[in-house]
Design a protein around this nucleic acid. Structure first.
Lengths: 259, 259
DNA sequence: ACATGTTGTGCGTTATGCGTACAATTGTCA
DNA sequence: TGACAATTGTACGCATAACGCACAACATGT
């Protein structure tokens, strides 16, 4: 065995560090602030100012960033990257119509989500039929994993042994007064979700909002949110059945096989 | 002026070539094929296989690509980049609800698009209220600029002098029998669109589909597609008025100022 | 069987990106 | 208005990190 250089000092020859640093620049544009200056980019990425500058200028050159004076902001071009994923998985053709159809029948918004790190990542979303309520999320939005029905249903699909570590580590941010803070309690809801095939959360992420989610594929879940009280107990049951029907239909279409 | 090195051999010291090459790797995943091998990536990007390999492995390391044996495919993580743009421009909070509302009132699908190079780039889309039809497009999808109502309305918003060059250069691919192929004719429709504030195309991109579009902001347009004959002449008028109302409401919200 | 096309991976070379340093600019308090 | 502080833009020497040739192992097809 050749003395593989220590992984701390020596870089992996198969990884392009410059590329990774550039992606880090792109990643700091998470939308929380509409535009960033070079110094802010450098600070947020932890890179040298000159390095951040090269990364940002390269992104401008490629058309992903716009430079207005000293402010850099994203261009719509980043959407084309997402478009590649959505097209590859036939989201527009095979998934979205199904979501729309069931959402119209139920009168609620239906969301398809997958997992990205310790967040639930929204892949697609139907619009609420007559729903005046909208939470402002879009494809690409990320929700917490531990305190949303979507996230817990995703966790329920994971291997049980990997769960405890995942739950225990997180700082367990408390979003509402009703947010569960005990890791054991959260693990219990996840276990129950795995058992039942669905999960319901009540106001743990946004107060007064009840979330309900079911599994579709190994790493894909379906969910809806409704204001508490808007639908009675049987209303939730109807939504649950609707989500399960929707999930079945998506499975039949077989478009979500690869994550 | 210092003798700036010739731009052909000497790289711009402010552009990170490795980063640009890596982005090129990411860009070839446009969704036309669900997965790519290293050789395909190298061929499509024109890079050396070793270079393409480093780029792809870096993307795997960062979580944007998945490697299954010899096949690389996109992960949902690319959506987070799009999410940054959508959140920065308040698409989910300020735009999507407006689109949904007007779409439900009109019974048609409404699409918000911007421009990316010589394509119209879909930013957001409402679902048709009772609409069984869906064209399989999603945010991030790209439509031709010359033969769609969205594209021509975008061109109508450009400076007139830059138009002729833009139209004349393109190979003028013919999508349907009704596609206009004469640059002068297309330029005339664009000029008419600028004059009237809206544009209607009939089956030039997809046969039997009528497209209608209006301008919202300097580089943003709104459009709908309906099957020919589904709505009579007054139906199209109603849709046009609805789109214009929708555009006004979006302008009032003022969320689309920066492209 | 050979021929053709993959794929993975060393490794020497040198181009390339790094970051310090300085200059120019903006903002802020007296 | 001053002078100070904190940004920003840019250049350039140096070391490193990316390049791409080359080879070997494997697959595919004629």
């Amino acid at each position: 065995m050749p003395p593989t250089a220590d992984s701390s000092t020596q870089q992996d020859r198969n990884i392009a560090a410059t590329f990774a640093k550039g992606m880090a620049v792109l990643e700091v544009f998470d939308g929380q602030v509409p535009a960033l200056t070079l110094s802010e980019i450098a600070r947020l990425t932890g890179q040298d100012r000159a390095t951040a500058r090269r990364g940002a200028l390269t992104l401008v050159h490629l058309g992903y960033l716009r430079q207005d004076g000293r402010h850099f902001s994203l261009t719509p071009r980043v959407l084309t990257l997402a478009g590649g994923f959505l097209r590859a998985h036939q989201i527009g053709r095979q998934v979205q119509p199904v979501l729309n159809h069931h959402a119209a029948a139920l009168g609620v918004e239906i969301t398809l989500a997958s997992r990205d790190g310790d967040h639930a990542l929204l892949l697609a979303q139907s619009t609420a039929h007559g729903g005046p309520i909208s939470y402002g999320f879009t494809p690409g939005s990320r929700l917490p994993l531990l305190h949303t029905s979507l996230g817990r249903m995703l966790l329920a699909g994971e291997a049980p042994d990997r769960l405890e570590g995942r739950i225990g580590e997180a700082p367990l941010t408390r979003f509402t007064e009703q947010s569960l803070t005990d890791p054991a309690q959260i693990a219990a809801t996840v276990a129950a979700a795995r058992q039942a095939g669905y999960v319901i959360t009540d106001g743990e992420f946004e107060p007064g909002i009840v979330g309900i989610a079911v599994a579709v594929a190994p790493h894909a879940v379906l969910g809806s949110s409704v204001p508490r009280g808007r639908d009675g107990a049987d209303g939730l049951d109807a939504i649950l059945r609707g989500l399960q029907n929707c999930a079945s239909e998506l499975r039949l279409a077989g478009a979500l096989s690869g994550l």
